[in-house]
């Protein structure tokens, strides 16, 4: 392992402040749109899969 130095720690700390997490030009709206589109794509992908009508969801309810 490379030796931990104060400079290295400062480099790490400086590199990841919360404000720097989003790449330049990417806004919260962009992430929201991307997340919605990903969910929609996933839904469409699953919607295209044909399964027997008798298949129940893998959830368990115990009364």
């Amino acid at each position: 392992m490379s030796k931990l130095t104060r400079r290295k720690l400062l480099t790490v700390a400086a590199a990841v402040p919360a404000a720097a997490q989003t790449p330049a030009g990417t806004t919260a709206q962009d992430w929201a749109k991307a997340a919605r589109e990903a969910n929609q794509r996933n839904g469409e992908l699953l919607g295209g899969i044909k399964i027997p009508i008798a298949v129940e969801p893998a959830t368990i309810f115990k009364a």
Partner: peptide, 25 residues
């Protein structure tokens, strides 16, 4: 930020998609 927006978008997933996923599961 991506995580926050991902959580918000999760609220809009239709029930049909979740149930389809669980049936495929």
């Amino acid at each position: 930020v991506k995580q926050a927006e991902g959580l918000k978008a999760g609220l809009e997933i239709p029930a049909k998609d979740y149930l389809k996923a669980m049936r495929i599961r």
